[in-house]
């Protein structure tokens, strides 16, 4: 078993922008409403860098930025794990389109934004952090893989880790071959155990078990609409202030057993 304290949380998806808005929906105080995402302001980056950001990078960075802000900590000493199934398909679409043209005019900015670790790169520029960052993918179960990677870093390296898990809406024509139907990002700031904070503990991976689902049909639909939204059962327990055991879908048909010990 490995464990970590949860310092802060942030969410960004249509109808749930920011943790306060998400909490209200997840507690059932407010119905979920499908509202388009507002423009996401990345205040942590200088204007010259900000200009180069794509919608996917903004989604990831915004959510990490909000979690950092909520923690009241500086980003300089914090490691990062960015988890995303697809990475930036807007960029892949532009590059693949450019490659169909006569001179194959790939844009240099598009190319350096095309790496899966582009959000992590901008994050370290924005925070001035020289701490490690990892960028991973585990397809539809990228959230549990990211959580396991982040919590194993907390446990083994004894460091603070910002986990940001995100996927944006794929552009046409890739939207026709991809199952993501809503943008979603979640960020959790995790660190070594500290009294007074909620505790997450990962037990192990279990097989022949069914992952925890959302009781509310609209939220269950969102959970299935984006790999990062597989975090919703955890977010719901946090919003309700519930100590609870959850099963998160994991790779190779397994589930990751997660215990949340809630502290207000």
């Amino acid at each position: 078993m490995i464990s970590a304290s949860l310092y802060s949380v942030a969410v960004c998806t249509p109808g749930m922008v920011g943790w306060e808005a998400a909490k209200a929906v997840l507690r059932g105080d407010e119905p979920w409403a499908d509202q388009p995402l507002p423009p996401l302001k990345i205040e942590m980056l200088a204007a010259n860098e900000r200009r180069r950001l794509t919608p996917t990078i903004k989604l990831a960075l915004y959510t990490a930025q909000e979690a950092l802000r909520a923690s009241g900590l500086e980003g300089e000493d914090i490691s990062a794990v960015f988890a995303s199934s697809n990475g930036d398909l807007d960029v892949a679409d532009r590059i693949c389109s450019a490659l169909t043209e006569e001179a194959r005019p790939v844009s240099p900015t598009q190319f350096h934004n095309s790496v899966h670790n582009a959000p992590a790169g901008y994050w370290s520029i924005a925070t001035g952090s020289q701490e490690p960052s990892s960028s991973i993918s585990a397809g539809d179960v990228s959230f549990s893989a990211g959580l396991l990677e982040a919590m194993s870093q907390v446990e083994v390296e004894q460091e603070m880790v910002m986990l940001a898990c995100y996927d944006s809406l794929p552009p046409f024509p890739l939207s026709e071959v991809e199952s993501i139907t809503t943008p979603f990002a979640v960020a959790l700031l995790l660190g070594p155990l500290q009294k007074g904070l909620s505790k997450l503990a990962l037990q192990n991976r279990e097989y022949e078990q069914v992952a925890t689902t959302m009781a509310c049909p609209a939220l269950e639909q969102i959970r299935l609409a984006n790999p990062a939204a597989r975090s919703l059962p955890l977010l719901e327990s946090l919003a309700m202030g519930r100590t609870q055991s959850l099963l998160l879908p994991s790779v190779n048909g397994g589930c990751l057993a997660l215990d949340l010990d809630y502290v207000d």
Binding site: N117, S135, I136, Y207
Partner: peptide, 22 residues
């Protein structure tokens, strides 16, 4: 993740798996 998914299946592995892309 197609790479690790493929290799897990080719090798018959069912443990934790991921792709690092940095």
């Amino acid at each position: 993740y197609a790479l690790s998914d493929f290799c897990c299946r080719s090798l018959g592995l069912t443990g934790p798996a991921t792709v690092v892309s940095t």
